[in-house]
Each structure stands twice: as structure tokens, then as C-alpha cells.
């Protein structure tokens, strides 16, 4: 997984270097700036389901990983669909998938077919799902349908309306 953001820490960048130029699929997740009295960075999950709603890749989960006694796991279930589809069967944290939460900004994730956490997609119809849940805030789930493989570069964008901004999926053949 490659994660690029202007304000991002060096650790994530070192991961990016290792996998440079090999991305088949990139996802850009925007977390909007919100004018609220009490702001907590949202929990966010990014995953891919096939056309029978089966999770084929659990790509990213951002949650409060630093709390004592894994207390941050208590709210994982607020990402309801993710929790139901895959989260509740997983042992957290997961190397290369889980990470700390992010504040407002746009975050790019890059994945390579067959390289964890991205599975080798069989030709078919899928949907990328991005779910965000915020403490004392709301929840939003965006679905980005796509077909794999593609003949040429394609970018599909879905616009969130509350907890998520733009979610962009770019596929390279």
C-alpha cells in the first residue's frame, strides 16, 4: 500500500518507495473540513466487494490505534457495513492495512494486483466501498462500481456529502 499526502509522516513514505510505479489501482480519499464544535478524526475503512457482496480485499482501516488496552477498537463497529462484511472476523491491527486516523485532507492509496492487501482480481464487476464514521458525528458510505480489467486508464469519482469528500478510483490496465 502506498499512501501519499503532503503532510504525511516519513514512515508511510518509506513504504511508498518500495512499491513505486507498480500501482494497478489507486484510491484517493478526501476527508472534509468540518465546522463543528467537537471534532474527532473519522474512522475510515476502504475495501472491495465482488458482485455477490463478498469482500475480496480489505484495503485500509484507519482507527484510533494508540489508545490503551485496544480501547480504540470499541468503535470499529460504527463503520457498520465494513464491520459486518469483514471487520468482525479480523484480528486487529493488521500489518499494511490498519493505521492511525487522519484529519481533513486528501489521501492517496496505491495498490498492486496480487500484492497484499490487494488480491488478484478475477475479471468481473466489483465495487470499491469507503466508509467513514466519526465520534459525535455522522457516518457515510460511498460505493464506487468498477469492472476489472480495463483497456485503458480510467478514473471514477464519487462525491461524499457529509463525512467524506471526493473518493476517486483510478485503474490502470
Amino acid at each position: 500500500m502506498k499512501l501519499v499526502n503532503n503532510a504525511l509522516a516519513a514512515t508511510a513514505l518509506s513504504v511508498a518507495v518500495m512499491q513505486a510505479n507498480a500501482a494497478d489501482l489507486s484510491v484517493s480519499v478526501e476527508i472534509p473540513e468540518l465546522d463543528v464544535a467537537e471534532y474527532h478524526k473519522p474512522y475510515v475503512a476502504v475495501w472491495i466487494e465482488d458482485d455477490s457482496n463478498k469482500v475480496v480485499s480489505n484495503l485500509a482501516v484507519w482507527y484510533d490505534i494508540d489508545m490503551r488496552n485496544a480501547e480504540g477498537e470499541k468503535w470499529l463497529k460504527d463503520m457498520r457495513q465494513w464491520w459486518r462484511r469483514i471487520g468482525r472476523t479480523l484480528e486487529m491491527p493488521i500489518d499494511g492495512v490498519t493505521g492511525a486516523t487522519y484529519g481533513p485532507g486528501s489521501y492517496d492509496l496505491e495498490f498492486t494486483m496480487g500484492k497484499a492487501p490487494m488480491s488478484d482480481l478475477q475479471p468481473g464487476d466489483y465495487r470499491l466501498r469507503v466508509e467513514a464514521a466519526r465520534e459525535v458525528g455522522g457516518r457515510e458510505l460511498l460505493n464506487v462500481p468498477f469492472t476489472w480489467p480495463q483497456q485503458q486508464d480510467i478514473t471514477i469519482t464519487e462525491q461524499g456529502s457529509s463525512e467524506l469528500g471526493a473518493v476517486k478510483l483510478t485503474i490502470k490496465p
Binding site: 485496544a70 480501547e71 477498537e73 470499541k74 470499529l76 464491520w83 468482525r88
Partner: peptide
């Protein structure tokens, strides 16, 4: 009814 985490 649906909980995550440990020792809840």
C-alpha cells in the same frame, strides 16, 4: 447488540 473490541 453488536460490539467490537475486547472484554466489553
Amino acid at each position: 447488540t453488536q460490539l467490537s473490541g475486547e472484554d466489553r
